[in-house]
Each structure stands twice: as structure tokens, then as C-alpha cells.
Amino acid sequence: MPEIDALLGLSFCLYFFDDQQHKLPHLHVKYGGYELIIAIETSECLEGYLPNKQRKRAEAHISMYREQLMQMWGKAVKGENPGKLEGVC
């Protein structure tokens, strides 16, 4: 599972071939011992938990880069390396 981005302790990851369980395009966001799976298109929390502050930060980050994340998702579900999120300061 490649890490595609990191932000203030949050780690954003995409699994290869990960379209079976949740069906929706999604990211795995990790923070310490927590992990939350968030839908890319809607920022809906699909499974897991992050503390409120980190969850809001993750949702905002996903919203800001939604189009690029959808392109990366398309690569990851085909087994291709999605690369890193570009344009992140």
C-alpha cells in the first residue's frame, strides 16, 4: 500500500486492487494507532476512526485534491503505482 501523501501526522494511503470491500473510491488515512477509510468523492467516513480534529483535516485535504485523487485511485485499482499527490506544500 503506497503512501501517497503525509500531512501533520496524517498518512494518506491507497491499496492496490482495493475496490472489492467498499466498492467506492477511497483512501486509508492513518494517524498514530487510528485508521479511517474515507470515500474520495463524498468524504464520507466508510470505516474506522480518527479523532475529530484529524478527521476534519483529512476530509478537507481530500476535498482540496479530489480530482487528482480520483485519477490516482484509477491507477491503484488496476495495480499500478498511483505515485505521490502533487502540488502539496
Rank of each mutant, 00 (worst) to 15 (best):
K84D: 01
L69V: 04
E41Q: 14
M64I: 08
L7S: 10
Q21P: 09
G33A: 13
Y34W: 12
E44T: 13
Y34D: 11
F12L: 06
I62P: 02
K84P: 00
F12R: 00
L46R: 09
Y31Q: 01
F12E: 00
V77T: 01
R55E: 14
S63M: 14
K53H: 06
L14Q: 02
R57W: 09
I4L: 10
K23T: 12
A60R: 15
A60H: 12
C45F: 09
K23L: 13
N52L: 09
G83W: 04
A39D: 14
G74N: 11
L36G: 10
T42L: 09
K78M: 07
E41Y: 04
G74V: 02
E59K: 15
C13W: 03
Q71V: 13
S43V: 15
K23I: 11
S63R: 15
A76P: 00
E86S: 15
H61A: 14
G33Y: 07
E47Y: 13
E47S: 15
Q21F: 11
T42E: 04
E3W: 03
C89E: 12
K23N: 08
E47K: 14
L10F: 04
G83F: 07
E86W: 13
L69Q: 01
L85N: 02
K78W: 02
R57S: 13
L85C: 05
V88D: 00
E47D: 14
C13Y: 06
P82T: 04
P51I: 01
H22E: 08
E3K: 15
L85D: 03
M70K: 12
W73C: 05
H22K: 09
K78S: 06
P82L: 04
P25W: 00
G32W: 00
R57M: 14
W73F: 00
M72I: 06
G87M: 08
S43M: 12
A58S: 10
G79C: 03
Y31A: 00
H26E: 03
L50M: 07
L85K: 04
E35S: 10
K84W: 00
Y34L: 07
L24T: 11
V29Q: 02
G32S: 06
M70S: 07
E41C: 08
N81W: 09
M70Q: 11
F17W: 10
E47F: 13
R55P: 04
Q71I: 14
G48Q: 09
E80P: 02
S11N: 10
K78P: 00
R55M: 12
Q54A: 06
Y15T: 08
A58M: 09
R66D: 01
G83C: 06
K53E: 08
A76D: 02
D5A: 15
L8Q: 11
Y34K: 11
I37T: 12
E35N: 12
C89G: 15
L8T: 05
L27G: 01
Y65C: 08
F17Y: 15
V29E: 03
K53L: 09
E47R: 12
L8I: 05
E80Y: 07
H26K: 05
E41S: 11
D19N: 13
E44C: 10
R66V: 02
Y34H: 15
P2K: 08
E59S: 14
E80K: 10
F17G: 02
E59A: 14
I40E: 00
P82E: 04
H26T: 01
F16W: 07
C45I: 15
R57V: 12
G32L: 08
L27E: 03
K30D: 04
L36A: 15
L8C: 05
